[in-house]
C-alpha cells in the first residue's frame, strides 16, 4: 500500500504536525515503505485469536482509594508554561 502526499497531509492534520510542502513527498515515501513492511502481517493466520492489548494478560486494574493526596503546586507546575496569566494557561483565542 503506498501513500500519497495528500494522505500525508490528512494524517499530519489528524496528528497536528506541521509538515512543509517539500517534506510531504519524503514522508509519503517513508511511510509507504513502513506500511509496505508491516503489510506482511496480513499473512499471519489469526482467525479467532484474541487481540493482546497488554503483556501481562490475566492481571486486572488495581484501584486507588478515593483520597485527596495532591496539594496545590501551581506556581511550580506553571514554570514550564510559555504563556500564563492569572493562573490560566493561554492559547490563541478559540472561537466556538
Amino acid at each position: 500500500m503506498s501513500l500519497t502526499s495528500r494522505d500525508v497531509e490528512k494524517i499530519a492534520h489528524l496528528a497536528r504536525l506541521g509538515i512543509t510542502d517539500p517534506e510531504k513527498p519524503v514522508y509519503a515515501a517513508n511511510l509507504s515503505k513502513i506500511v509496505e513492511f508491516v503489510d506482511q502481517l496480513a499473512r499471519a493466520k489469526t482467525d479467532g485469536v484474541t487481540p493482546m492489548a497488554h503483556p501481562l494478560e490475566g492481571l486486572t486494574q488495581r484501584l486507588r482509594a478515593d483520597e485527596v493526596t495532591e496539594a496545590d503546586d501551581r506556581e511550580k507546575y506553571q514554570r514550564n508554561a510559555a504563556a500564563v496569566q492569572a493562573g490560566l494557561y493561554l492559547v490563541p483565542k478559540v472561537i466556538e
Partner: peptide, 21 residues
C-alpha cells in the same frame, strides 16, 4: 472527593489550576 485518575481534589470553584496535579 478526588479525581477519577489522580489524587487532586474535585471541589468546585477553586482558583484556576490549583486543583490540577
Amino acid at each position: 472527593r478526588s479525581k477519577i485518575f489522580s489524587g487532586a481534589a474535585t471541589a468546585y470553584g477553586a482558583p484556576p489550576n490549583t486543583q490540577a496535579c
